[in-house]
């Protein structure tokens, strides 16, 4: 009964064709099959946020999303948010400036979460940023500077 099915995923504006078993998560499809390893596996059970990607503009956890569920959706990963000329996204630039990371492993998830947080209108105050960024654990403890970076990027986007 193990079988793979052909699938086309729209990732960062480009179609990617792959063959996956239905049980394969979007996270594992990105990392193991498409070598898009910027999306991180931290817990693989919806409890850390490291695997956050955008699906149709909304932040979701790719570890609890089956790859087949994402067919027909626009998927954005960390590899897809900088400008085509290599210019950093304002959130990326703010993360660098504020030192909003240390080991860097939760960082792609934090950045995508932050991009969505700002777009959702949930970056109105430091308290709101802290709450709406709480789905992304950072064990290095860069929370203060993450808040600073998100605040700066949110202000710049207004």
């Amino acid at each position: 009964m193990t079988h793979s099915i052909p699938l086309t995923l729209d990732i960062n504006g480009s179609p990617h064709t792959l063959s996956v078993e239905p049980r394969v998560t979007l996270l594992d499809a990105l990392r193991e099959q498409l070598q898009l390893t910027g999306t991180k596996k931290g817990c693989d059970q919806g409890q850390c946020g490291a695997c956050t990607v955008l699906v149709d503009g909304r932040r979701v956890l790719s570890c609890l999303t089956l790859a087949v569920q994402a067919e027909g959706c626009e998927i954005t990963t960390i590899e897809g948010i900088a400008g085509e000329n290599g210019d950093l996204h304002p959130v990326q630039a703010a993360f660098l400036e504020h030192d909003a990371f240390q080991c860097g492993y939760c960082t792609p998830g934090q950045i995508l979460s932050a991009v969505a947080c700002i777009r959702e209108g949930h970056a109105g105050s430091d308290a709101e940023i802290r709450e709406y960024m709480s789905g992304n654990l950072c064990r290095c403890g860069a929370y203060n500077t993450i808040v600073g970076a998100v605040r700066q990027a949110a202000e710049a986007s207004r």
Binding site: G46, R59, V60, L61, L64, T65, S113, Y132, S134
Partner: peptide, 9 residues
């Protein structure tokens, strides 16, 4: 409840 990512899903 949960996190915004999970609430989106």
């Amino acid at each position: 409840a949960a996190s915004q990512q999970l609430r989106n899903m």
